[in-house]
Design a binder for these strands. Structure first.
Lengths: 205, 205
DNA sequence: CGACAATACGGAACATGGTTCCGTATCACA
DNA sequence: TGTGATACGGAACCATGTTCCGTATTGTCG
């Protein structure tokens, strides 16, 4: 309400309101590291309590830093998603075949999802949206869109599928359970992509 | 250990040991109906307690008839899976293009999964195997295998993808969350199938 | 330096959902 | 009708995510 008087409103996007307590900052890092470790050898379904224990903090602290479990997962893998975005942009600049670029990019993305077991299943809100979390989608869809568009302009693709739909589809394909040797998400994603190349949109689609 | 003495071992596959109590049989039917109703308007994630309540029985009764939650789901949709198997066989007998048959069959399957919201995500064991349940897979894979084989023999398909993998892939594609209008599982399954038709297996695959 | 308020912490407690247990009620059969 | 087998009900248990709140730590100001 009071318009002047101590500048602290309008948090906009400044990283921290002001000197965040050192213990807080330390704990956040500790948590991120602990979570990365736990996720690595127990999968992203590891219980929050366990991560808290690994970090040597209480669950309350986890939730102070990451309001929802999924926020922690996102935070842990954020940089990998960013790397994927970068890769996409680099591939775009590279002059070669847009389709080849798209294929390479999808491969990298699938690899990322498959590597961390079960990463693809991080839920955003409730049990509502299965599949990729909004953060991933928000960042990856634009890149995918451009790759797709480039390939389309080059006449290498005929399907009118959207980037969002493709991302979700791939994310879902990477959603496997167990270490089933009979199912290879990478292979399926290749097949899907082959379909994107050759599929002619039918009437209702 | 004792080899004789009352015949009751070797349960093999006889439907019921002897006259099953009428209340038991009645409750099973009641449960199946209640579950179908609850699943229909709350999705297959509805709590067991709720189904028990709808059926007017205790949870213990639910678990007596269906040892695991997923068994109940399976039981509710078993006949639809069977119908899908039948359809496959009918399509096989029909003389037309094997590929067309496969496409029609996949469509029917996808429709089945999409219609019941979230059906595709019934877990078998723990959180191990996401996607289709073993029962579904066990029954559908053989049919799919034959359809696929027929199409391959007719030279309409080049990919060496297996029926199991295809079923799982399609199941995963149907695994969506929310009623996202931007994602159409049917369309994605068509694209995947188009990929099956055109995709040439590369080196490592 | 010492007090105070803001910030952060820990972990018990709550909510939800699957599953198990066991005392009691009901049924089949003699 | 008596009796053992079968089935039932639902409290209780376990696991998980998440919230709450009393206590501890930290930064700042007098």
């Amino acid at each position: 309400m009071v318009p002047y008087h101590k500048e602290e409103s309008v948090p906009s996007d400044d990283t921290q309101s002001r000197t965040r307590r050192v213990d807080a900052r330390r704990n956040e890092k500790t948590l991120l590291d602990a979570a990365a470790r736990v996720f690595a050898d127990q999968g992203i379904d590891a219980p929050v309590r366990q991560i808290a224990a690994e970090a040597g903090v209480g669950v309350g602290t986890v939730y102070r830093h990451f309001p929802q479990r999924s926020d922690l997962v996102i935070a842990v893998y954020r940089h990998q998603v960013d790397a994927c975005v970068d890769l996409g942009e680099r591939l775009l600049r590279r002059g070669s075949s847009p389709l080849a670029a798209l294929e390479e990019w999808v491969d990298a993305f699938v690899d990322f999802l498959v590597t961390k077991h079960g990463l693809a299943s991080v839920n955003g809100g409730q049990a509502d949206e299965g599949g990729l979390h909004a953060y991933f989608l928000d960042h990856l869809v634009p890149v995918c869109e451009r790759l797709l568009e480039a390939a389309r302009e080059a006449g290498e693709i005929s399907t009118d599928i959207g980037a969002y739909e493709l991302m979700r589809g791939i994310g879902n394909l990477c959603l496997f359970g167990g270490d089933d040797t009979r199912y290879d998400a990478r292979k399926l994603s290749h097949v899907l992509l082959a379909g994107v190349v050759s599929h002619r949109a039918a009437d209702g689609e």
